[in-house]
């Protein structure tokens, strides 16, 4: 009886861990700050290509282009801006959503336009850690399953 209960608990453990990983609420520990960031677009990349901020930070992006007309579209935040060479555009937003968001060119600017991509990482990047936790619990669950039930196969 005890063994049966122990086995049941063992099988349920990965699901419990997965549920905790997905649903546990977390709080941002970093105090929010205002960040001024210069972002320049050229064919076919942004400089810097990767920006890291903390959740809750107020972001002020100064957007420029140095060759042709480009665009700036931030996934997840839906912010879009057209960038003409020589003109600086300012975008302000609050980084409320954690995760990794790609910014990409929204104005056709040449052959590699669809792949002109940069990355904004809003720490603590909870979606990544949750995905990682989910993966680890999935792996653990699979191994536990194979260890106990594998012998019954074939």
């Amino acid at each position: 009886m005890k063994n049966r209960l122990r086995r049941k608990l063992l099988y349920l453990a990965p699901f419990a861990v997965a549920a905790i990983v997905i649903f546990i609420p977390t709080a941002n520990t970093q105090p929010p700050t205002i960040r001024h960031i210069n972002l320049n677009a050229t064919q076919f990349d942004y400089t810097p290509g990767r920006i890291e901020v903390n959740q809750g930070d107020e972001i002020i992006l100064s957007l420029t282009s140095t060759d042709v007309v480009h665009g700036f579209y931030l996934d997840g935040y839906g912010i879009e801006q057209r960038l003409e060479p020589g003109i600086t555009r300012e975008v302000r937003f609050s980084a409320v959503q954690p995760g990794k968001f790609r910014y990409r060119c929204s104005v056709s600017c040449g052959p590699l336009h669809p792949f002109m991509i940069g990355e904004l990482v809003v720490n603590s990047n909870l979606p990544f850690w949750r995905a990682l936790g989910l993966l680890v619990s999935g792996i653990a669950g699979t191994l536990v399953y194979l260890w106990h039930f594998g012998g019954n196969e074939q």
Partner: peptide, 25 residues
């Protein structure tokens, strides 16, 4: 665009777990 990464994780997760089972078998 915000949903893409969830779908990616789902696809990778399924692929990995199936692959682990395949390796064992």
């Amino acid at each position: 665009p915000g949903v893409v990464s969830f779908l990616q994780v789902g696809a990778l997760m399924f692929g990995l777990l199936y692959a682990l089972n395949t390796a064992y078998r």
